[in-house]
């Protein structure tokens, strides 16, 4: 997902405290920042929320790529608003992670050094305008699958950030589908462009949910803590079931001949993505990994004088105010 393969940390805490904590979670109580929590819970959440936040921020890059080349002024204004939302989502999530005792700068530095990850999906390039449609429809659609249940997650600040984010995600997915509809109903060349975008984004979108449950070693503890609400395969199935009819409506073909309704399980059969590719992308060898981190590094470095300048200005204003009193 936006947080993939988050390793859950073991806890070496007092078993009585752990049991009481688990009882609170089982009773559906929210855990708030200043309350006692197992070290493993804290560390796992920092990693998961941090990765989620980084994904929102890095996720601005593939779409930002098309702002200056949007086909109409209306499309441009909408895309700009969408990318601005992603910055907001990153910020809500960074703030939620900060309540766990890590600073914003520490998280940024961990992203730049490669110590923290972001979602594999943003390491794929956005080659045509139709990719803006595919990203909104598929990538934001996959994100919603994961984020809607996370509104009920056990950590209060994370759950509240998710509520805000989910309200805005629906705008994102609709704007993507709207682009796809326009393209799919357009000239044969436009329709081919839409099909090509679907072809390229289908499997990377399926990878967003993380490895198959049988290979997913970190799920059990996170699910007990209610920081992961569904298994990877459950969410992937739900996503496919939702998306296949939407593709049919567009008159586009899912690039997987195995996609077929399975009456018995009440869902579609489909092929697994190429997990070897997924692990390569996670390791840093995707098509755009280097470019993405380079862009973040440049923004961080080029913005340093500005961040420092505003701090210096604030200090000067404070001093002037004290002098005037």
């Amino acid at each position: 997902m936006y947080a993939q393969m988050v390793k859950s940390e073991a806890s070496n805490d007092d078993p009585h405290l752990l049991a009481a904590f688990q009882a609170r979670i089982d009773a559906g109580e929210k855990i708030e920042p200043k309350e006692w929590m197992p070290e493993g819970y804290r560390k796992t959440l920092i990693r998961q929320i941090g990765q989620h936040a980084h994904s929102e921020i890095v996720g601005q890059l593939p779409e930002g790529n098309w702002i200056t080349r949007a086909p109409t002024l209306e499309r441009k204004a909408i895309l700009l608003a969408k990318v601005q939302d992603e910055a907001g989502h990153g910020l809500y999530l960074y703030c939620a992670a900060e309540t766990l005792g890590i600073s914003r700068d520490e998280m940024t530095e961990a992203l730049l050094s490669g110590k923290m990850k972001y979602s594999s999906i943003f390491n794929y390039p956005t080659l045509t305008w139709a990719d803006m449609g595919a990203v909104g429809w598929l990538v934001d659609g996959a994100a919603i699958m994961n984020q809607v249940p996370l509104q009920r997650t056990s950590f209060g600040p994370y759950a509240r950030a998710m509520v805000r984010i989910c309200k805005e995600e629906s705008f994102h997915q609709r704007q993507g589908y709207d682009i796809m509809m326009k393209m799919a109903q357009g000239t044969p060349a436009q329709k081919a462009m839409a099909q090509d975008a679907l072809n390229r984004f289908w499997y990377p979108s399926l990878m967003m949910f993380g490895p198959s449950d049988k290979d997913s070693v970190h799920s059990a503890q996170s699910m007990a803590w209610k920081i992961k609400m569904n298994t990877n395969d459950e969410l992937r199935q739900k996503f496919v079931d939702q998306t296949v009819p939407q593709a049919e409506y567009l008159g586009l073909t899912i690039p997987d001949p195995a996609v077929k309704w399975n009456e018995e399980k009440g869902g579609y059969d489909f092929s697994e993505p190429d997990w070897a590719e997924f692990f390569e992308v996670i390791k840093g060898n995707g098509p755009c990994n280097a470019e993405r981190i380079e862009a973040r590094q440049k923004a961080w470095d080029d913005g340093a004088w500005f961040r420092d300048g505003l701090m210096a200005h604030a200090a000067k204003q404070r001093a002037a105010k004290v002098a005037a009193e």
Binding site: R104, R160, A161, R164, A304, R307, M311
Partner: peptide, 30 residues
């Protein structure tokens, strides 16, 4: 000199006549 911008808690009045309500936090220099 690099020091992180301080953290602020944000309260918003949603409509006239309602209380300001805590909505989240953010970093800003002043």
């Amino acid at each position: 000199m690099s020091s992180e911008w301080p953290l602020w808690e944000i309260f918003i009045r949603g409509q006239h006549g309602l209380n300001h309500r805590h909505v989240g936090s953010l970093h800003a220099p002043d």
